[in-house]
Simulated scan of single mutants.
Amino acid sequence: MTEPEDRCRLVLIVPDDDDAAEQAKRLEEALSGGDVASVILPQYSLDDQAFQKRAEALVPVIQAAGAAALIAGDSRVAGRAKADGLHIAGPLAEIEEAIDKFVPKLIIGAGGASDRHHALEIGELRPDYIFFGKLDGDIKPEAHPKNLALGEWWASMVEIPCIVMGGGDTASALAVAETSAEFVALRAAVFDHPKGAAAAVAEINAILDEKAPRFEA
Rank of each mutant, 00 (worst) to 15 (best):
L106G: 03
G112I: 07
A67E: 08
K146I: 14
R116C: 12
E124L: 15
R126E: 15
A69E: 09
R76P: 04
K101Y: 03
E94C: 06
H117D: 07
S75Y: 04
K146C: 10
G109Q: 02
G111Q: 00
D115Y: 03
I99A: 14
A69I: 01
L135T: 09
P127H: 10
A83L: 01
L92I: 13
A81Q: 09
L120G: 05
G109L: 02
L106K: 08
Y129M: 05
E94R: 04
R76W: 07
E97R: 15
I122Y: 06
R126F: 10
D84N: 12
G111D: 01
A113M: 07
L148K: 01
S75A: 14
A98D: 12
G133C: 01
E97S: 15
A143N: 03
P141V: 02
G111S: 00
D136I: 04
G90M: 14
F102P: 12
A110T: 06
G79H: 14
L135G: 10
A98S: 13
Y129Q: 02
S75F: 06
R116W: 14
E124F: 11
E96D: 14
R76K: 08
P91N: 12
A81R: 11
D84Q: 01
A68Q: 11
D100L: 08
A78D: 07
L70V: 13
I107M: 06
F132L: 06
A81E: 12
H144A: 14
V103W: 13
G109I: 01
H144T: 13
P91W: 10
H87E: 00
A110K: 04
I88E: 03
L135Q: 09
A98P: 10
A89V: 13
G133I: 02
F132W: 04
R80H: 04
I139E: 05
L86V: 00
S114N: 13
I71P: 11
K140V: 14
H144P: 05
I95D: 07
I88G: 05
G66M: 10
D74Y: 02
L70A: 05
A68C: 08
A78G: 06
P104A: 00
F102E: 09
F131D: 07
R80Q: 04
P141A: 07
A119W: 13
K134G: 09
D138M: 04
H87N: 00
G111W: 00
G66P: 10
I122V: 13
H118E: 11
Y129K: 02
K146T: 15
R80I: 03
K134N: 12
F102Q: 09
H87V: 00
R76V: 14
I122F: 08
G137N: 04
P141C: 06
A149Y: 13
I99P: 12
E97M: 13
K101V: 04
S114M: 07
R116D: 11
I139G: 08
F102K: 05
K134V: 09
A149R: 12
A69W: 10
E94M: 06
E142A: 15
A65C: 08
I107W: 07
L125N: 10
D128I: 03
I130S: 01
P104Y: 00
E142Y: 15
L135Y: 08
V77Y: 00
I108Q: 00
A143K: 00
L70C: 03
